[in-house]
Design a protein around this nucleic acid. Structure first.
Lengths: 109, 109
DNA sequence: CGAGTTGTGAAAAACCAGTTAACGCAGGCA
DNA sequence: TGCCTGCGTTAACTGGTTTTTCACAACTCG
């Protein structure tokens, strides 16, 4: 479960810390270099830990619009996020695929 | 923040809990890894406890179409469901066969 | 027993996700 | 302006998973 520490909408998931307000995601205090979309997607996923989110839900929150049919944007960004998270946190899989449905963020890996 | 998104149509059958809205089926709180079809079939069966459902009824609700003659899809998926449920809940038989008719879900095993 | 029905493993087909590359666009800068 | 860089988007290829179909074994019941 994510713990918001009072004032800011800070998200914690093990060694990962997300500070949406500051456009920053940190692992062990070191900032990941994420693009805007990547950070938005990560924030959205991490805001709903353990909840399976459909591509439509993710697209709605991050892109703030409807995906066109056969849109693979979410998949592409999940892949990029995994690559960057995997660099900083090997052996830990935070983003899980649910075939036919969408993705789920698990703070426990 | 709300735990379930909205008041979902949650189904309970002993230690088994089904949350169709969240695409999840849990035993003792632990999620079963079911495919879409498996979950749909389980949900349909569990939505009509103690009622014998014909293959046609099940096919109509899950596949949303008419089965072709000699279609065994329902049987195959019942078999797979039983296997996965049996893993999580040994000694308990939730899905019963009614020869010549169809299947029945019994929450009491 | 014997005909009809159901259980189930496995091949085949269909579908879906992971990943990489290419393209266009915008901003920075000499 | 012309070049460079980085991001977002789209397309295409690849590999993996799910669904469907088939074959045969096991079972039910008269």
């Amino acid at each position: 479960m994510a713990i918001g520490t009072g004032s800011s909408s800070q998200l914690l998931a093990g060694r990962l810390e997300i500070r949406p307000e500051e456009h920053a995601a940190l692992v062990d205090g070191r900032p990941l270099s994420l693009t805007m979309r990547e950070l938005q997607l990560l924030t959205t996923l991490a805001s709903h830990p353990q909840r399976i989110m459909t591509r439509e839900e993710l697209f709605a929150e991050v892109w703030r619009s409807e995906p066109r049919r056969d849109d693979r944007s979410v998949d592409v960004y999940v892949s990029r996020l995994r690559a960057k998270l995997g660099q900083a946190l090997p052996e830990i899989q935070l983003i899980h695929t649910h075939n036919g449905i969408g993705y789920r963020f698990s703070p426990d890996g």
